Amino acid sequence: MKRLLVVDDALFMRRLIGGVARDAGWEVVGEAGDGSEAVALYPELKPDLVTMDLVMPNMGGLEALRLIRELDPEAKVVVITAVDQKQSVLDAIRLGALDFVVKPFDRARVTALLRKVAVTP
């Protein structure tokens, strides 16, 4: 079973993403409410994928993405963020994010993305 770390400052979004992931056959191994928490949890949990919000308190998603990719250059991160963050999404892709999903998101889009990542070596 593939392992997921869900990073979002909104508890309801973490639960929503986690529910979609569990329905797609993933195990949610951790949740983080900001980027610094995600960076701290990543080496301990060693998830197969991180879903990362971009706008969060303390440390935003771009900085967390950069630090996680420094810890593990093979880390797989998908950005899930609000529609008005176009430049930030482009920056995230440049930093190594695999893909992005715009909030509010379609469950089928997230499920398809999780399935795609699950079969990627």
Rank of each mutant, 00 (worst) to 15 (best):
M1Y: 07
M1K: 11
K2Q: 11
K2T: 12
R3V: 11
R3Q: 14
V6A: 13
V7T: 10
V7K: 01
D8Y: 06
D9E: 06
D9H: 09
D9M: 05
A10N: 13
A10R: 10
A10K: 03
L11P: 03
L11F: 10
L16T: 14
G19H: 06
V20F: 14
V20C: 07
V20S: 08
A21V: 10
R22Q: 15
D23Y: 10
D23M: 15
A24L: 13
G25Y: 12
G25K: 11
W26Y: 10
E27H: 12
E27R: 14
E27D: 12
V28H: 06
G30S: 03
G30M: 06
E31A: 09
E31M: 12
G35R: 03
E37P: 02
A38D: 12
V39R: 09
V39Y: 02
A40S: 09
A40N: 02
A40I: 05
Y42E: 06
L45M: 11
P47S: 09
D48C: 05
L49V: 07
L49P: 06
V50S: 12
V50G: 08
V50E: 01
M52T: 03
M52L: 12
D53K: 02
L54Q: 02
V55N: 08
M56L: 05
M56A: 01
M56D: 01
M56Y: 02
M56T: 02
P57G: 13
P57A: 05
N58F: 03
G61A: 03
G61D: 05
L62T: 00
A64G: 01
L67Y: 08
I68S: 00
E70S: 12
E70I: 10
E70G: 04
E70V: 13
L71M: 09
D72G: 05
D72F: 01
V78H: 05
I80V: 14
I80F: 06
I80C: 06
T81R: 00
T81E: 08
A82G: 05
A82F: 00
V83E: 02
V83R: 14
D84S: 15
Q85A: 14
Q85H: 08
Q85W: 13
Q85D: 08
K86L: 13
Q87D: 14
Q87G: 02
Q87H: 12
S88I: 00
S88C: 07
L90P: 04
L90A: 12
L90T: 02
A92W: 04
A92H: 04
A92T: 11
R94Q: 13
L95H: 03
L98Y: 08
L98V: 07
D99S: 07
D99Y: 01
D99H: 10
D99A: 13
F100M: 01
V101A: 01
V101F: 07
V102I: 15
V102E: 11
V102N: 01
K103L: 11
K103V: 04
P104Q: 10
R107Q: 13
R109Y: 00
T111K: 15
A112R: 05
A112P: 00
A112W: 00
A112N: 05
L113N: 00
L113D: 00
K116N: 12
A118S: 15
A118Q: 07
V119I: 08
T120P: 00
